[in-house]
């Protein structure tokens, strides 16, 4: 096959495929994260996943497996403990603190893996192998399917929880299902963008989309477009200018955010 220059190498093809899958799933989930004001939760899940990955490496398991298991467990915990909105940040922050404390212990015990840890914290999209690529694509497809199934109950629970509860929507079940979906998509996004930078995909593009459009369908579509373009441009830039892809993607995400705040229609503030 005649690949364009930047796709000639296998690892670049893996990076594009994985980055695209993660950007699509992450920005769709992220649209609801932003609407539900759970951005801190999304951020924390990635970092809690870091501790899981470090711990898994320590005992000889796959870091990706550790990521998935810990983010899912944290999602269940956060759904049922400290779920009340007024205390949510407290509950999320304390769990995040505990996880990071354990994470640094795991690194301390097994210091040979400091580089791997850096890859989890800041992303290592160019180091993604073929197997990991297929896992990320598979999980992303699953995340999109789950979101499509959950869409209507999730939308009403997000927009008017009291209404949803009164009309027989199982609010707790929908919330748990969404948190697990979020955890899955975070787990596969962490190796791509980094545990510390999940905002670049999960928050930046959806927040800009919500500033630009007041319709749900258009907002979801715009979120995906922004996230995918960011990832592609970031990968291209890192190929031609040898800075980390994460840096480029984060920079682009910030630029989109800035543009959405400046170019906001009047009267849309608040």
């Amino acid at each position: 096959m005649n690949w364009p220059d930047f796709l000639a190498l296998g690892f670049m093809r893996n990076a594009f495929a994985t980055g695209t899958a993660v950007a699509i799933a992450g920005s769709l989930v992220g649209y609801f994260v932003v609407l539900r004001r759970q951005t801190f939760t999304a951020h924390a899940l990635g970092n809690i996943g870091f501790a899981g990955a470090a711990g898994a490496q320590l005992v000889g398991f796959s870091p990706l497996g550790g990521l998935v298991v810990t983010t899912l467990a944290a999602a269940v915990w956060l759904t049922f403990v400290g779920a009340r909105l007024s205390e949510r940040d407290l509950g999320v922050g304390m769990l995040l603190m505990l996880a990071l404390g354990l994470g640094v212990l795991f690194l301390n015990i097994y210091s040979a893996n400091a580089n791997a840890a850096l890859g989890i914290l800041f992303g290592s999209v160019l180091g993604i192998g073929e197997r990991q690529m297929w896992v990320a694509i598979g999980v992303s497809v699953l995340v999109v399917v789950l979101l499509a199934i959950l869409f209507r109950p999730l939308r009403i629970v997000t927009i008017n929880e009291d209404f949803a509860r009164a009309h027989g929507v199982p609010v707790e079940l929908v919330t748990l299902a969404f948190m697990l979906t979020l955890a899955l998509s975070i787990a596969v996004a962490v190796p791509v963008i980094g545990a510390l930078l999940t905002f670049a995909i999960f928050v930046g593009p959806p927040a800009a989309a919500q500033a630009w459009t007041r319709r749900v369908g258009t907002g979801l579509a715009l979120s995906v477009v922004l996230a995918v373009v960011q990832v592609w441009l970031g990968l291209l830039a890192s190929y031609y200018v040898d800075y980390p892809a994460t840096t480029w993607i984060a920079g682009l995400s910030f630029a989109v955010y800035l543009a959405s705040r400046i170019g906001r229609p009047m009267g849309a503030a608040a």
Partner: peptide, 28 residues
């Protein structure tokens, strides 16, 4: 329901707010 518990800063359009309730218990 009482409107006090609605997030005041929602950026969605009025019609989206209403549409969200349409057959909201169904999946898909």
């Amino acid at each position: 329901p009482q409107s006090a518990r609605l997030a005041h800063e929602h950026q969605l359009a009025g019609r989206e707010f209403v549409a969200a309730a349409f057959r909201a218990r169904r999946l898909g």
